[in-house]
Structures are given as C-alpha cells and as structure tokens.
Design a protein around this nucleic acid. Structure first.
Length: 485
DNA sequence: ATGTGC
C-alpha cells in the first residue's frame, strides 16, 4: 500500500475532521470521529481510502467515513458516498462483498424473569438446532429450482412471507419494504445462483449472529414507546446477508467493472475502486444484480425470523403472537441505492453508497414506515457480543449532512488474525459467561475472531454520531445469549 | 463477508 501518509486533518468540531481536497480529489473528505479514535484509524490507511473515493467522477458532497471506519476493499468500511446519477458512478467496492448484509430486531412481551437461570442456554441451543449456520452452511431440504430462485431475487422478503415465513405485516417494517423493485435476476450469473440455491435460510459465519438480549436502558421514552422498547423487555437480533450468492455477484462484477475504467475514461487512484457510470450498461447490470442479491438477503433474514419465532413457540409452549414477537425493523448496511436528496437547495437523484453504514432517515420522510414516520427511522447498531447494542433514530441533521446515514456497529480494532493470536490459551466462551452472556458458535475460530476486544466499544461510536447529531440514542440492549456462525 | 490464503 506504499508509505504511510501524514494526513493533514482539519478539526471541524469534537466529532468532525476534514481531509482537505488535494491531488485528484474532487471534494473534501469528512470523517466522524474523536481525536482518540482518529489515531487508530490513521494507522489503518482507511483515510487514504476516504481520499481515493473523493477522486471518483460525479461525487456529490463529501466522501464520508463514520466512526466505525476501518480498511475495506477499495472503499473503507464505514464509508458513505453519493454520486450523481447523470454524471456519477456505481462501484461494487462501495457496497462490499456481503451485499445487503443487515440487521433486524424483534421485540417481545417476554421479560428477563422468564429467561432466568440456565434457560437462556437451552433457548440458544434450540436456536442453534433450528437455524443452519457456519461457513458453507446449507439447507439440503431446500435446493431452489431456477424459476423459484428468480422469484426470491425479484420479490425478496415478500417471497418468504408468501411461503409462510412470517406475517405480511412484517414487510412494512423492513427497509424498502424488503424488496428492491429494480432488481434484475437475469444479471445474476449461473455460478452465483448455484452458490445461493441451497443457502437461502442460513446464517453464515463471522460476525453474523442471532442474539437474544434485554432492553437495559431507555434514553428517549417517547420514541422507545413507538418502537415497542421497554426496560427489561426481551429482544432478538438477526444479523446476516446474502451469503455466497451476494459474494459471487460482487466478485463477478468487480471483474467486469475493472474493464470499465479505460472504456469510460475514469481515473482510478486504486484499482479496487473499479466502477462504471450509473447509467451505463455495466452500471445498470451491476445495480440489477446487486438488487437481486439484496432481495436474497431480505428473504434470508425473513426466513430466519420465522424459525426464531418457531423456536420461541416450542420453548415457551405458546404462540409467537402471545409472546409478542414482533419485528421492530430491518436495516441494510451494505448497499447502493438510488435516492432523492436536497443538495444546496436542489432536489437531486443520487446513487448513495453505504458500506458498513446505515440509512438513518428523519421523521416525516416517506420511506420511513407510517408507524414510525412521526419519530424517524429506527437505526439498529449491534455492538460486540459481550457488551451492548443500541437502537437509534434518524435525524434532520443526517438528511442535511450524510444523505440520511450513520454508523453500523462497533468496528474492528483487531484483525481476525490478531484476535485469534490474542485469544490463544483463553476460553472466550467462559469469559463471556462470567459477564452474563451465553455464546455458542458453529466455527472453531469464530469466538476468538469475534471476541469483545476485537471491536471498539460501540458506546464510543454511538457517542460520536450522537455528538455530531446524525442520529439520536433511543435505547441500549444487553446480550444474554448469542448464536454465532 | 466468503465452498476463507499462493
């Protein structure tokens, strides 16, 4: 990656830092972080990636980085960048390998009392039995035929609901209603289809998880009430994406778009930023395939939600309705979407890339479900498995400044390799149990890779987006039991 | 993230 650069960062306020436009940059970079966080970020060369993104044609506003920024393929993880639809580009590196990786949260009528003692262990074990997880996990009983897979890729979560996974009322509580309408299954390669065919309804590995938790603290009682969050209430997080299908789509289109730079005369400071004009054939094809992979991920989370409900029904011997297991919301954190935003007083059509960043639309926005429109979009921020997670809400400031975007999680501080090294000779499961969190994982190295110290303290990340005003805390959740992939 | 790296 070359010699480490000394960054000329200009502090705007305690939460914002500007990278002044230099070299081939077409706009400034804007990093949301505290001074302390910035030191760690600089060592990772993620800031060079923020500058590189600012060099791409048609960028509108700043090349931004959220406080959970770290190094990624081409674009940093935690990156937000918007491009003009007419003159700008779309880039697979700006979305990431796990297309529509995202999080959903369920609330319930259950309280801590009903999960006391050893019960949480049995519940997590039951989830582990009912939801396929781990690297290469598949469902042998469901190898989708091509026509059926096409419907998944076109309809997303609605396909799953039509098949009996969950309730039609779930759909209104998913970003985009759980369906990217411009998805084009015909742009998804045979190889990607083959990988996805038996993986629908599986969790995957790494930081993907199902987590049973409890509402520990409410910061905004009014909004929490609207979201159905009450202190002591049991919640369930589902974090997963588009599995091998989305990975293959990304791989396929990186290969295709690597040829677009010379064809369209785009200067790339880094080949990993390969991209094509939004309105070119290659650009439209990628968006179509990406939308299809996103719909696969929506269907995936919907199916897993159904099995979570079934597991709770078996475990507590009563219906999911009586348990009140209702979907609060489902957010995407690896996506590029065509959205309209007001820029310098003018309404513009933009291709907004959020890679490891969450949409955080404010109250009143038509894309916020009617039930939440008066308060704003729920923003789901999982932390590491030992500490806590947050629910935030979108703000007007986010609309004005970040194209309605905020952070997506804690962000790594140790690489997977470093984490494994530092976990050697320890039992991460035992350490977590001492902190009151029961964990189980499909992969042998997963618990080491995912141990709490491998991540920033998510409360520090949330403090930055709160301080900057681009989202507002509603509640903090504590994990009780986690099933990892 | 990933049928996980050359």
């Amino acid at each position: 990656m070359g010699a480490r650069k000394t960054w000329n960062l200009e502090q705007v306020d305690p939460w914002r830092w500007k990278i002044r436009r230099h070299g081939a940059m077409k706009t400034d970079g804007l990093v949301y972080a505290t001074e302390e966080m910035l030191r760690a970020i600089q060592e990772e060369q993620a800031l060079e990636q923020v500058s590189n993104v600012a060099c791409l044609p048609g960028i509108v506003g700043y090349s931004m980085a959220m406080p959970d920024i770290h190094w990624g393929y081409g674009f940093p993880i935690g990156g937000v960048a918007a491009f003009s639809v007419e003159e700008g580009v779309v880039s697979p590196g700006g979305v990431g390998y796990d297309i529509n990786c995202g999080v959903r949260l369920m609330t319930s009528h259950l309280t801590l009392k009903e999960l006391g003692g050893e019960r949480i262990k049995d519940l997590v074990s039951a989830l582990f039995t009912n939801i396929p997880s781990g690297v290469g996990s598949s469902r042998k009983d469901m190898k989708l035929k091509d026509a059926e897979l096409d419907r998944v890729l076109e309809q997303g979560a609605a396909w799953a609901v039509a098949k009996g996974y969950g309730d039609p009322s779930d759909l209104e509580k998913i970003e985009e209603g759980g369906c990217i309408p411009w998805a084009d299954p015909s742009k998804v390669s045979a190889k990607a289809r083959e990988r996805g065919r038996s993986q629908l309804g599986t969790l995957g590995s790494g930081n993907h998880f199902v987590e049973v938790g409890v509402v520990e603290e409410v910061y905004d009682p009014g909004v929490a009430e609207v979201f159905g969050l009450h202190p002591g209430g049991i919640t369930v997080f589902v974090h997963t994406g588009s599995r091998g299908l989305g990975h293959q789509v990304c791989d396929d289109y990186i290969r295709i778009l690597l040829k677009s730079a010379s064809k369209y005369g785009i200067h790339l400071p880094d080949k990993q930023l390969c991209c094509a004009p939004v309105e070119s054939r290659e650009g439209r094809d990628y968006l179509g395939a990406m939308g299809a992979a996103a719909n696969f991920a929506f269907a995936n989370r919907q199916m897993i939600t159904h099995w979570v409900r079934e597991t709770f029904e078996q475990f507590f011997g009563t219906s999911a309705e009586r348990l009140g297991l209702r979907l609060l919301y489902d957010v995407c954190h690896n996506m590029a979407k065509i959205e309209e935003h007001t820029v310098e007083g003018r309404l513009r059509k933009l291709c907004v890339h959020r890679k490891g960043a969450t949409r955080a639309f404010a109250a009143g926005h038509p894309a916020v479900p009617p039930v939440y429109r008066a308060v704003g979009q729920p923003v789901l921020i999982p932390g590491d498995m030992g500490r806590y997670s947050y629910v935030l809400v979108g703000t007007d400031r986010a609309m004005a400044e970040t194209f309605g975007s905020t952070c997506h999680g804690a962000g790594r501080v140790l690489s997977r390799h470093q984490a494994i090294k530092s976990a050697r000779g320890r039992s991460i499961a035992k350490e977590l149990e001492q902190r009151g969190v029961f964990v189980t994982a499909a992969g042998k190295a997963t618990l080491s890779e995912e141990m709490p110290e491998a991540y920033k303290d998510v409360s520090d990340v949330v403090a930055v987006v709160q301080g900057a005003g681009i989202s507002r805390p509603v509640a903090r959740l504590k994990p009780l039991g986690v099933m990892k992939g």
